[in-house]
Design a binder for these strands. Structure first.
Lengths: 127, 127
DNA sequence: ATTTATGCAAACTATTTGCATTGCC
DNA sequence: GGCAATGCAAATAGTTTGCATAAAT
């Protein structure tokens, strides 16, 4: 049976409080500030469990370690192919896509992520 | 200046001939069959260069090493959260999304990827 | 009392880098 | 001939795992 540990609550709390899609490492550093004894392995284990339970969301971005996000309003991402920077893209979730994929293939679709790629405004200068 | 090496041509050829989004490792193994002396570092270096030039496409999927794809008709992906399997989703590219993101944020958007997640048909049985 | 979760260190996977050498241009 | 690309091996980044111990049920 799933156990309710102090570490689990601390880690979940840290993710909820952090913005900007923290990596496991980011969460580890944040948690360390107050709770020196929590190990990195425990952070990884709990992040994955929390994501599996739907408590938090795992976000995958190109050329980046896995990231995590408290369940905030869903948004998409843009990545600049030149400088690698990642930007949030808020254009409203498109639930129609999930339904289309579900109908076409028989999947049960929980959600989707969209990653745009191209050049960010700064990297477009002088091209 | 960019040089036209034998290795580069062999690697590009291998990717074009392979279906199913090969990883760098997959490409390396394929290339090794005929050309024993090509090193893994060269495979990585050339795959990234080819992707940057737009000769091939880099595909990022959750919980997977980076994958590559010859420039076939663009398609999306579905990943089963239970078994991890990845399926292609052909629903026609949605260019309107690129324009929307470009207009809202001033990005120059080249393209986008969509990854759906949920349960595949096999993993839905008996739930 | 039982059994899952933790902390630690070691292992592993994927990828990148330094450097001497090779081979395009 | 000069400089970019290669091959090799070592280094790095990110993540997972084995195991003895601690703590939740």
């Amino acid at each position: 049976m799933k156990r309710d540990t102090i570490q689990r609550r601390i880690i979940a709390g840290a993710v909820r409080r952090m913005r900007r899609h923290p990596t496991a490492e980011d969460v580890y550093v944040e948690v360390q500030k107050e709770h020196h004894s929590i190990s990195k392995a425990t952070v990884y284990r709990n992040l994955h469990e929390l994501a599996e339970e739907g408590e938090i969301r795992a976000v995958f971005l190109p050329d980046s370690p896995e990231r995590f996000d408290a369940r905030t309003p869903h948004h998409y991402h843009f990545r600049c192919r030149r400088c690698g920077e990642v930007f949030d893209v808020d254009m409203g979730y498109l639930p129609g896509l999930d339904k289309a994929a579900a109908d076409m293939y028989g999947f049960r679709v929980d959600d989707h992520d969209i990653v745009f790629q191209g050049r960010c405004p700064a990297c477009q200068e002088g091209e």
